[in-house]
Design a binder for these strands. Structure first.
Lengths: 337, 337
DNA sequence: CTGAAAGCGCTTACAG
DNA sequence: CTGAAAGCGCTTACAG
């Protein structure tokens, strides 16, 4: 099959100017709203372009202003099923505000510290700024972007200095959840999951520690199992916590939580009668679980929107907060009753 | 925090030309490989731009050629957890070939038949072509794109005429799987799942029917349960199939299969001892199931790559197949032993 | 309030 | 084989 291009020659700013007997300058000003222009003239132009459905060529506009009106989004390629919905939802938030400001999203993918595509996008001048959907303790994307000096924002926290970042307030969320559990007379709350080198794990642990400190209770190190990410390790951790007779098992994320719940079922330990369970993150994979699981809830779409707003502000030279922390909700359900 | 732009003035084609004492034309020709140019001259230019890391401004290049070097990808916004990995993997395939041809992906999202974003992207001249990741029986995106006459390709089949499409060969895949099961002496194979109005459902059913026809066996309509997409409906279907004592339950996709397996477990029906199970689609959600599930396997990354190749060929005015069907694998596992 | 002209960084007939 | 010049479709000082 041969592709046939339709023959409606694209209408340009010159066409509009000619048709109206004004200059291109005037048309341009009517559209952009910049520069002085008579009200009547502007309205004539606006009416005409609306009627004839004229749309400026973004490329030409970009070239004249040395801007692309694109923002690059760097998406992880080595995803796991669990955090895919997070990225998708966040992306929707980003897209929503991008479009509202007449920007588009240029998508690029890459594995951990593999940023050839990112470099290509930047070097070809295809974007005005970048959003990193994920960061690492040692992060070559961040280092590269800092070096070339292009505006960028990270989703999630990072320890690199001078990086603009937007994150959920994991520390305070965890502190509050644990505090509530402590108030409900649970005294011995075990912790399992998370990679120690992830910034978010540190935040969550800090929240846990603070809650104990505020309550004037001592920490028991032997019921804290960080770096348990494989199934076997999680099962071992659960066994030890059961031996130690913890009141509650708090899971660093919901993938871990799922495995904890499976293990408990295997062992015929009833939730919440024999042990309570809570998760520091909620997602659809826990949605339909019986009993329902107490967890922290974050507005991921809002996170995406905030990230994008921040980036666009930077691109337009406005001042932005170096670090923005978003809210959270503690959702109490059956599993801690 | 105030953003500081680094002061390394971008190097342009004029800078290169001046530095080498040649014309911009020559530099352009050295890079593009178009037009006559002396070997020695070309190599001098190439060496210089490599050393100074010069990269042409894609915007300017695009404007001069009236091209954007972007392709638009329309991603569903109303996703389900199950098909998210499909889109992600397909996107990776698309991205891989796009980058290799120096194109970028402009991402746009939309719900069923909501294509304001798509229109915006096209009207702003931000893309050279479009990939639709999903199609509908009545598809306004397709109708719009046909009207404006921009090159586009759909992932999956459609009944619209003159639409370039790439799909997995669902019909023959299903035919082969069912034929194999029939050869294994299963005679009564029940069917459950799928939305009748989806093109893919029709293809799968046709494969099933053909297999029976080839085997010279009669179809039993009362063990075919299409349009069972809610949990309750699937459970009812399973109950009826068990009553009818089918040899095997074939699931139209793996989300349905998951629910069928749950139901069977609830009813204490053992797989494969009491009833066999197979799925017409594989994905990670079935991966860890015990027993392992017989299913059809498709190379989704290859699908994405093919789609993108096809679109780029169209953009460059080459002839392309109107319909491309990709291969499949039948993966026999425990559940049909 | 409006316009002529230069410019953004490339490509590409055309001429030599 | 190489280059001067026009052009892609916009924006924006500058002048009036």
């Amino acid at each position: 099959m041969e592709y046939q291009k339709e023959n409606d020659k694209k209408i340009t700013i010159s066409d509009v100017a000619d048709a109206l007997g004004v200059s291109k300058t005037t048309v341009s000003r009517a559209i952009s709203g910049k520069g002085r222009i008579g009200t009547e003239t502007r309205e004539r132009v606006l009416a005409y372009i609306k009627e004839h459905n004229y749309k400026p060529n973004a490329l030409a506009k970009g070239l004249a202003q040395l801007k692309t009106y694109n923002i690059g989004v760097m998406l992880p390629e080595d995803y796991t099923l669990v955090d895919l919905p997070f990225f998708q939802t966040c992306l929707m938030g980003i897209g929503e505000v991008a479009v509202s400001m007449d920007y588009d999203i240029l998508l690029t993918m890459g594995r951990e510290n593999e940023n050839t595509q990112l470099m290509r996008m930047v070097e070809n001048h295809k974007v005005d700024g970048i959003i990193l959907m994920r960061t690492f303790t040692k992060d070559e994307s961040i280092e590269y972007l800092q070096k070339v000096g292009i505006p960028f924002v990270t989703v999630g926290s990072t320890n690199y200095t001078d990086v603009v970042q937007v994150d959920n307030d994991h520390k305070n969320a965890c502190r509050e959840l644990i505090s509530i559990l402590l108030m409900k007379k649970m005294r011995r709350i075990g912790i399992v999951g998370g990679i120690e080198s992830h910034v978010v794990t540190q935040s969550r642990l800090n929240g846990y520690l603070e809650a104990y400190e505020n309550a004037g209770l001592a920490i028991e190190k032997d019921i804290i199992f960080v770096n348990a990410d494989r199934e076997a390790m999680i099962e071992r951790a659960v066994e030890k916590m059961l031996e130690a007779k913890v009141d509650c098992i708090a899971c660093l994320d919901d993938a871990v939580c799922m495995q904890v719940l499976n293990k408990l079922r295997k062992e015929n330990v009833r939730v919440p009668e024999e042990v309570k369970v809570a998760s520091f993150y909620d997602s659809s994979i826990l949605d339909s679980h019986m009993p329902s699981i107490t967890s922290l809830s974050f507005n991921v779409r809002e996170l995406g929107m905030t990230v994008c707003h921040t980036l666009l502000d930077m691109i337009e030279g406005k001042q932005v907060e170096q670090r923005t922390l978003l809210g959270y909700e503690v959702i109490l359900k059956e599993s801690t009753k």
